[in-house]
Amino acid sequence: MTKSDLVNDVAKAIPGGKKRDAEVIVNTLFDRMTEALTQGDRIEIRGFGSFHLRERKARTGRNPKTSDKVQVPSKKVPFFKAGKQLKKLVDSVRK
């Protein structure tokens, strides 16, 4: 399912049923979440999961083509942890 599939499904379920509204809704949600992470904030969605940033330390890497050493600076990487409910749900088909 892509973002546009999600937009279509949302449109069917909102008052007025406008696709334009659904688009704004889906974009607003992911934009706000991105914004929160940009500010270093953690996101917690009950029943779904949480997002936080993890730090990757600076390291010496190598250019695989030339095998030259390159300094890779430290960086932050987004990380998602599925909530208990969602974990169970995803695994439920098996059980």
Binding site: T2, L6, A13, I25, F30, T34, F48, V90
Partner: peptide
């Protein structure tokens, strides 16, 4: 509506299908 969006995502994942949100992940 917020609840609805996350429920739609959850339903899809429950079926074992992936969710692709361009620009997010």
């Amino acid at each position: 509506i917020v609840e609805l969006v996350f429920d739609l995502i959850k339903d899809t994942l429950e079926k074992g299908e992936k969710i692709k949100i361009s620009g997010f992940g």
